[in-house]
Amino acid sequence: MNGTKRQINAWTFVAPSLILTLIFGVYPVFWALKYMFYDYQGFGTPLFVGLDNFERLLRDKDFWKSVVNTFIYAGGKLVITIPLSFVLAVVLNRALKGRQLLRAIYFMPTVISASVMAIVFYVIFNSYNGMVNQLLMGAGIVSAPIDWLGAKHALVTAIIIAIWGAVGNYMLLFIAGLQNIPEDLYEAASLDGAGPLRKMWSITVPMLGPVLQMIIMLAITVSLKGYESIMVLTEGGPYGKTEVMYLYLYKLFFPVSSGGSSIQQFGYGSAVGFTTAVIVGLITLIYFYVSKKLNDIY
């Protein structure tokens, strides 16, 4: 059954997929790998400049500020999202009346486009006439409107929106992991007199180990890469307070109406793109290494 004819048959079926992937997925990566050594603004002849772009990158304060913002953004999002979604998963994995409905409600935000939700939040978080402030003030919780999208709070607001969109997703991933833990382990522990917290630490967490590790890794990479909602919400402003690295990168290729430079910089942008990919890769590796070490100790 694996003769030449079958080989050719198989290749005709893989070819469309492979060709599209090579042209639109692989080629752009090599394009970037080439132009990161060039001075290229989108017109004229690209000029080979060696490592100049990387030298400039090292001195580019705005870029490194965006890297720091990315860490704050991703860190803030994960510190709330992971524990909250884990607790929800544990609770909703038990026999509980209405758990299907609750799961469906918690998961609902994840089916909505990040950009659309950013617009909704933009309107309701609006400082002087947004509904959140109106309600907070109406209820007497705050006396003056909070400037949600101002320099002081914008990054926190962006984190709130990211958490809102992510909790349901990770809750579901945790539930899927929890369902792989055999029920009789808990029964045996109950017979031995273990309480709920004890069961959590001695059964749930260790048994969930590899899945937990995978989910957190996924969460880290996803939150480092996310910039859609920030782009719609604040475009990185005010004063670059919400500029994350992938948004900074985007602006080098597609300058936006406010903030940042207004010149396309493909060569420098490619260098920035390469560097951001390396940063994400490194963080993933470090996480992988540390969590493996922790596993060994455990």
């Binding site: 997925g25 752009p28 394009w31 992938y246 290729f253 597609f254 942008g269 793109g273 990919a277």
Partner: peptide, 25 residues
């Protein structure tokens, strides 16, 4: 090799850079 290429496209992300060559194409 085909499967490796497909999984690489899932894990490597250089962000908005790819949009430029894609647009040129």
């Amino acid at each position: 090799l085909y499967v490796v290429i497909q999984s690489c496209t899932l894990f490597i992300s250089i962000g908005a850079v790819v949009l430029r060559p894609q647009f040129d194409l």
